[in-house]
């Protein structure tokens, strides 16, 4: 083996070790939460902390699902309802935002005209502090009695994810060759049929990606839920925050279990579309 070859191999080996070490340490917080979720109460606060639970238990998960008759029963019942709430609100608003987004982005991508104002008003507000936008929304929602309701939260989520929906889908739609559209026009399809029968099947994967991306956004949302619906619709993020503040953050085991449960769906969705995450978060500024 030549000298330079050796050097190359050593460097390559070091790169591997370094990268694996970095990955491991970056995943440490997750690992810690996962381990804590299986620890029994006396292990939560022992010092030095145990890295691997000595007596693994699923009691934390049982607590999260069924609540407990113990001293926390008053403040905490079960995560099942919030879980279903989150799923319902996230799925409904995602579907609506996708339908609206599909129509809007088709119009923008297909006709090119008259959309620049729409695009601008979609992107600009992203720079505005969301807190300030929530206040007029709150006043508006009080007028139409949408505070603390499912449909109120759903509407807010639609508005919050629609920019992503429109811009991501527009990016995918811009990739549809115009010949397909023209062939479809000759075949007698109306604009609605062209969208439904030609474009949507062609951008099927993009549609899927956008849907999952919106689901992640909705699932992880906290601020809107906190300010606009916390007394009516408890989402999973609110439950975690509530559990946290009620026990001053000392209820480590259940917190971890709930954290894991709250994160699992988004991690699954995220891994599915991991190649497109950057595309979504940059509003399509980054090419796929």
């Amino acid at each position: 083996m030549s000298d330079s070859m050796m050097k190359y191999n050593v460097r390559k080996g070091l790169a591997h070790i370094f990268l694996y070490a970095v990955t491991a340490s970056l995943l440490f917080p997750l690992f810690w939460m996962l381990m804590t979720s299986f620890k029994s109460p006396n292990e939560w606060v022992t010092y030095p902390p145990t890295w691997i639970p000595t007596e693994p238990t699923i009691s934390n998960y049982r607590f999260i699902f069924f609540g407990s008759a113990g001293r926390f029963a008053r403040t905490y019942s079960s995560a099942v309802i919030p879980y279903l709430n989150t799923a319902f609100v996230a799925v409904t608003s995602t579907l609506v935002a996708i339908v609206i987004g599909v129509l809007g982005s088709y119009s923008l991508s297909r006709f090119k005209t008259g959309g620049s104002l729409t695009l601008l008003s979609i992107i600009m507000p992203r720079m505005f502090p969301p807190m300030a936008m929530i206040i007029p929304l709150m006043i508006f929602f009080q007028l139409i009695r949408a505070i603390d309701t499912y449909w109120g939260l759903i509407i807010v989520y639609i508005g919050f994810t629609l920019p992503y929906s429109v811009l991501m889908l527009k990016g995918f739609m811009d990739g549809v060759p115009k010949e397909f559209t023209e062939a479809a026009m000759l075949d007698g399809l109306s604009e609605w049929q062209i969208l439904y029968k030609i474009w949507l099947p062609i951008i099927k994967n993009g549609l899927m990606t956008t849907t999952l991306f919106l689901l992640i956004l909705n699932w992880t949302e906290y601020t809107f839920a906190l300010t606009l619906s916390s007394r009516g619709v408890e989402t999973i993020t609110l439950t975690l925050a509530k559990l946290f503040s009620n026990e001053a953050g000392t209820y480590y085991g259940p917190q971890s279990a709930l954290g894991i449960l709250a994160a699992i769906p988004t991690i699954i969705f995220g891994i599915f579309i991991h190649k497109h995450l950057a595309y979504g978060f940059t509003f399509g500024a980054l090419k796929r």
Binding site: M33, Y47, T220, E221, F244, G249, Q255, A262, L277
Partner: peptide, 23 residues
């Protein structure tokens, strides 16, 4: 993975590892 996790869960995560008796 971290970008997919709800920020509130991330907060909880860091609360755990930075707790007085934490790692």
């Amino acid at each position: 993975i971290p970008i997919m996790i709800p920020p509130i869960v991330i907060g909880n995560n860091f609360w755990l590892i930075f707790s007085a008796n934490g790692p």
